[in-house]
Amino acid sequence: MTLHKRHVGLGIYFGFLLLPIYWMLNMSLRHNADILGSFQLLPLVPTLDNYATIVSDPSWYSGYLNSLAYVGINTLLSLAVALPAAYAFSRYRFLGDRHLFFWLLTNRMAPPAVFLLPFFQLYSTFGLIDTHLAVALAHCLFNVPLAVWILEGFMSGVPREIDEMAHLDGYRFPRFFVTIFLPTIRAGVGVTAFFCFMFSWVELLLARTLTTVHAKPIAAVMTRTVSAAGLDWGLLSAAGVLTILPGALVIWFVRHHLAKGLALGRV
């Protein structure tokens, strides 16, 4: 009986998760006058006009590419620097290790509003403004600590004997790390990449501040498209739905790996 009840609860919660998204989808398929005129649970006269308006703006797909570019760079960069560090934290003790670990975490806590100006000026000084690299680097601030943290958990689950065996077999550290150790924690790397992708994809404040034209993220392009047309709920919703799509696609493609990764991980 309890099994039954818990599934009902889960169903209700998933309904709560999906309803607001569904509602935005519903709005995006209707004209503004239609939305304000009558309340419909299902769009009676669905239209794709809102999407057509957005898609006809030439800057929107470059927004997609920009977002994907900096998110991709960030994920790779975060993993590249976090992997050796996580190994160090999981295998060795060294002077200041705990403090370093804590300091890394504290970087998630900086209130962004005040740090925007120094960020902008720092990246201007290095001529990075309006590049994908700038946003990718800035997002490392909160993604690298998280990546180290998650990876450290996975690595601690791998017995040390593997390291020692490889050492006895004459493997040098870099070769051991790439050919033996990495495949062992494949699932952990996948989960970490997913979280890096996620936090970089959804962040807008830094991404918008550090870009002007050539690296503008999709979410910023969308909102600009909309604000030019005034408060058109249908258009706003269509823009919103389009920004959700890539994320939804990513989850769909990694769903099995995510399940496997989460199942194996001692996150």
């Binding site: 607001p20 509602w23 920004t243 959700i244």
Partner: peptide, 19 residues
Amino acid sequence: CLVILALPLLIPWNVVGTI
């Protein structure tokens, strides 16, 4: 379940506000 659960996490924050 994982797909549905992860969905809100992958929505840009300003769009969460809009929703």
